[in-house]
Amino acid sequence: MSKHDIPQVVNFLRQNLNLSNDSVQLALKQSQSDYHSLPIILWQYGLVSLPELDRVYDWFESYIY
């Protein structure tokens, strides 16, 4: 994922998973520009459940990769 994909990722997380902007911004900050780690960071911080993590990876696979 590149920096150009971030707006689409944020949109997905906010609209499809109902994450707050603060939660998304925290995860982006913690990923420290290694945006491939973003799904795991979301899960590690308890921002998404395992089924939601699967949805994130499915979305990444269809949109990003």
Score class of each variant (00 low, 15 high):
P39I: 00
P39T: 02
S2M: 07
D5N: 09
F12N: 01
Y35G: 04
V9F: 08
L47D: 05
Y57I: 02
L47R: 05
W43H: 13
L19M: 10
S49F: 06
K29C: 09
D22E: 14
Y57F: 12
P39M: 00
L17D: 10
E61D: 13
G46A: 05
S62A: 07
G46T: 07
H36I: 14
L53Q: 03
D22L: 08
I41Q: 03
I6E: 05
S2K: 12
N11W: 10
Q25F: 09
I40A: 11
S23C: 02
Y57W: 13
K29T: 11
Q25P: 00
V48N: 01
M1R: 01
D34R: 14
N18H: 15
L19F: 05
I41T: 07
Q8N: 14
L42N: 06
L28R: 12
V10W: 06
Q25N: 15
S37N: 14
V10E: 10
L19A: 05
I6C: 04
R14C: 02
S23K: 13
L42Y: 07
I40W: 11
N16T: 05
G46I: 05
H36G: 11
Q15Y: 10
M1V: 12
L47A: 02
Y57Q: 09
P39D: 03
K29Q: 14
S37D: 15
I40F: 13
K3P: 07
R55Q: 11
N21E: 15
Q25M: 12
L13D: 03
Q32W: 07
V24W: 01
D34K: 13
P51A: 04
Y35R: 10
L50F: 13
S20Y: 09
V24D: 01
Y57S: 04
S33W: 11
Q32Y: 11
S31W: 07
L53C: 07
L19P: 00
Q8T: 03
L17F: 10
Y45H: 12
K3L: 10
Q44K: 14
Q8Y: 13
S49C: 06
D54N: 11
D34F: 11
I6Y: 06
D54L: 10
Q30E: 15
V10D: 03
I41Y: 08
D22N: 12
L19S: 03
Q8E: 15
Y57P: 02
N18D: 13
N21V: 15
I64H: 00
S37L: 15
D22H: 12
V10L: 06
F12E: 01
Y35P: 02
I40H: 13
Q25D: 11
E61H: 07
S20C: 05
N16D: 15
N11E: 14
S37P: 01
V24S: 01
L19W: 04
R14T: 04
